[in-house]
Design a binder for these strands. Structure first.
Lengths: 246, 246
DNA sequence: AAGTGGTCTAGACCACTTT
DNA sequence: AAGTGGTCTAGACCACTTC
């Protein structure tokens, strides 16, 4: 990051917008990694040759977008999936009674394959590019509840193993962060109700044709780069998908 | 609203927070109604005896909470469900192909009743208080798709009729705003998959036990006051519930 | 005591809308 | 031209954390 990228001529976008972009580039490039401290507002103001207030506005917006976290007296940190507060923001399935917990994970299958044209388009890679695919069963207190098919771009997730996925406790995205230097920041989901087929009903230990919640998720990292495509089937007998509309 | 409510002694909360509260009271009391212009930043600054920047910060937060809308050169307006942009924020069911549209509405039943203890608790009223209940079928292009049971606090929705609900085009919340002076600002939803029973399968013209998306919604107006409880069943054959996680 | 973010002020100028 | 919100600055002081 260098200060020469700031353009004060009036033709261009507001200074705080340019600074937002520069900070985001620092996040994207890995100059500042999740959990780390970024320079203080004054440091950045000097570096960019703007006032502290302008840097503040840039950081304000980035923290309202959940990319940064401010801590009074300490400094400003890169947001991370390791923070307890974030842990459950992307796990939308909550028990009808009691507190949310993390499920046990069993990897039924994991393989490396080449992207079909469909998967390539979804993950914004080229057909034939390497893809990591896995099929996962998750249980709460021993009750099979979530069945996921997951596709990841192979170039990013080299060396991902079933063992690592099963042993990791906490959000999968914290694993992505720690081991693959990839921070998931945003996801789109499509939800519908479907009937269980034979394979699924056996794995989830439910009757054939039982209603299941189908959740398709496309997750992104910085710069709208897709990092995960997921097709999930969830038993909502004692769990529900929750959402807040604002 | 009066300026004497501002307390500059350091024991109290930040000035902009106090101003946020005062503005929200103005919204709640109906002093400024949806779609209307509120006083300019300078006017409010003078009225509250603070600087314009402090008022700005208060308004900034209220507009990021979707309570106010700023328009450069024009002023700051109370957010409204009549704005095209807001129309689809609370209708989460989108067609798999094509653009979102508003469904046709048929009211199957509408009655006034007394709140059971369960409904009373949900709507934060007293058991026995009046409640408006209706049962509604909505169709897209003639295809029955959404079946809702809706409970409203009777004290607020006096005079609501089936005819009015059926004739209104656009969001139900815009009707609430115009005719009942009640602005819905936020909702919580619980989503699950269920099987269609006999009644439902007939109304929605689908096989018995077909999977349906069940969506329970509790909607609030200012000050976390519940204004609507809804139990919906949706056919997700050609529609899906969409969501963004951030 | 020094450094960080958090609040508040006063004033300048810009961009957009209305009169 | 006048009024609105939008950007930017410079400086003051507060609250919290660390040394």
């Amino acid at each position: 990051m260098n200060s020469t990228s700031i353009d004060k001529s009036p033709t261009f976008s507001p200074l705080y917008q340019q600074i937002k972009t520069l900070i985001m580039q620092g996040l994207q490039s890995g100059e500042w990694r999740p959990g780390e401290l970024i320079p203080s507002e004054m440091d950045l103001a000097v570096r960019f040759k703007v006032s502290q207030g302008t840097v503040r506005k840039a950081i304000d917006e980035l923290s309202s977008e959940n990319l940064l976290v401010r801590r009074q007296g300490k400094g400003t940190f890169v947001a991370s999936h390791h923070e307890p507060h974030v842990e459950f923001r992307f796990l939308r399935l909550k028990p009808d009674v009691g507190e949310a917990t993390y499920p046990q994970t069993r990897i039924i299958e994991l393989k490396r394959l080449r992207a079909s044209s469909e998967i390539a388009q979804i993950l914004a890679i080229r057909p034939g590019d390497p893809v990591v695919y896995f099929y996962r069963l998750q249980s709460f207190d021993g009750v099979p509840t979530m069945l996921d098919e997951i596709w990841l771009p192979g170039a990013v997730f080299k060396g991902l193993s079933a063992k690592r996925l099963e042993e990791h406790t906490g959000s999968m995205y914290s694993l992505f962060e720690t081991e693959f230097n990839t921070r998931m920041i945003r996801a789109l989901e499509n939800v519908r109700a479907v009937a269980a087929d034979d394979t699924v009903s056996e794995l989830l230990n439910i009757p054939r044709n039982a209603p299941l919640l189908s959740v398709e998720r496309l997750a992104y990292t910085y710069a709208d780069q897709p990092v995960e495509f997921r097709k999930g089937l969830y038993v909502t007998e004692h769990f529900h998908y929750f959402n807040e509309l604002t």
